[in-house]
């Protein structure tokens, strides 16, 4: 198993811990990651608002690089996954559009033939690696840990792109949590929005959404949330204090990155999983699983 690794912009700076811990997990599992150091930003959807073809061309540059490496792309960001798979689908389905974009890429000495697949880390773990195999690698089953699965939007929708799970009834996070030995809670808002895309534009609306998501997870009896997206993590972790101010209540829900939950079960220490970088400390939840 070898992939062209596209961490996305957020996990190179703000949520750096998501990328470093993904690398640690993959090293233990024997999943090869070749980081795409020269890749550009996918545009996070905002580029589509500006100009659809510019967004396509910038994504095609990323695909052309992966094609040169003869590898499929793996990303740990749900928004990058959504943007790239939407662009990839459009380019693959419309040959005349691909030709038009290739004429733009030609000026930069690049070409994309339409032979790359984009995957999210969660799906690679389940589809390519396999949960049976992962289960065998678990050193410290997360016994009695109550985890709220939180998908958010972009890992599931739109399903017409290169989706993997059923947006109406997703199960991949639940299956993963169970494979790690933890308990899944029934999180009512698991496929709802974290508001990240508008947190700087209409902050009160976004913070209201964040408050709802945290409250739903808390009401499900969870000790923590697991998130496959760094942007959802920023919303739910970094803005949790703002949500507490708006809702006038203490929420105190720690949010774990997908890689941190897996890493914990694989026996990686809390220190190495960089939980100290979170604003809401998960210490109380994770300490008994860490040396």
């Amino acid at each position: 198993m070898r992939y062209a690794y596209y961490p996305g912009c957020a996990s190179q700076v703000i949520t750096k811990e998501y990328s470093t811990t993904t690398k640690k997990v993959c090293q233990i599992l024997g999943i090869g990651l070749e980081e795409m150091k020269d890749a550009n930003c996918c545009g996070a959807g905002l580029m589509t608002d500006y100009n659809y073809e510019l967004s396509l061309a910038l994504n095609a540059r990323i695909f052309a690089q992966a094609e040169k490496m003869s590898l499929d792309i793996i990303t740990i960001c749900s928004t990058c996954f959504m943007v790239m798979s939407r662009a990839n689908r459009d380019l693959k389905e419309k040959p005349e559009l691909l030709e038009k974009i290739n004429n733009v890429l030609k000026k930069a000495g690049l070409r994309y033939s339409g032979n790359v697949r984009v995957k999210h880390f969660l799906f690679a773990l389940i589809e390519d690696y396999g949960l049976k195999k992962l289960k065998k690698m678990v050193k410290k089953p997360l016994k009695d840990m109550k985890v709220a699965p939180y998908y958010g939007c972009h890992i599931l929708r739109p399903s017409y792109a290169e989706g993997f799970d059923d947006p109406e009834k997703p199960s991949s996070l639940e299956r993963l949590i169970e494979a790690l030995g933890a308990d899944v809670t029934h999180n009512e808002g698991k496929t709802k929005c974290c508001g990240f895309q508008i947190v700087l534009v209409t902050q009160t609306t976004a913070v209201d959404m964040i408050g709802k998501r945290l409250k739903e997870a808390k009401d499900s009896g969870a000790q923590c949330i697991v998130s496959p997206c760094p942007l959802c993590h920023i919303s739910l972790d970094s803005y949790q204090g703002e949500a507490e101010k708006r809702t006038h209540q203490k929420l105190g829900v720690p949010v774990l990155h997908l890689s941190q939950l897996v890493g914990l079960a694989l026996g990686i220490s809390a220190n190495e999983l960089e939980f100290s970088r979170h604003l809401v400390s998960p210490e109380a939840v994770i300490m008994r699983f860490s040396d």
């Binding site: 959807g45 959504m82 939007c153 972009h154 929708r157 739109p158 709802k192 929005c193 508001g195 990240f196 895309q197 508008i198 534009v201 209409t202 609306t205 976004a206 959404m209």
Partner: peptide, 8 residues
């Protein structure tokens, strides 16, 4: 500009 792009 208020759309949060949840794609629902």
């Amino acid at each position: 500009w208020s759309c949060s792009r949840c794609i629902e």
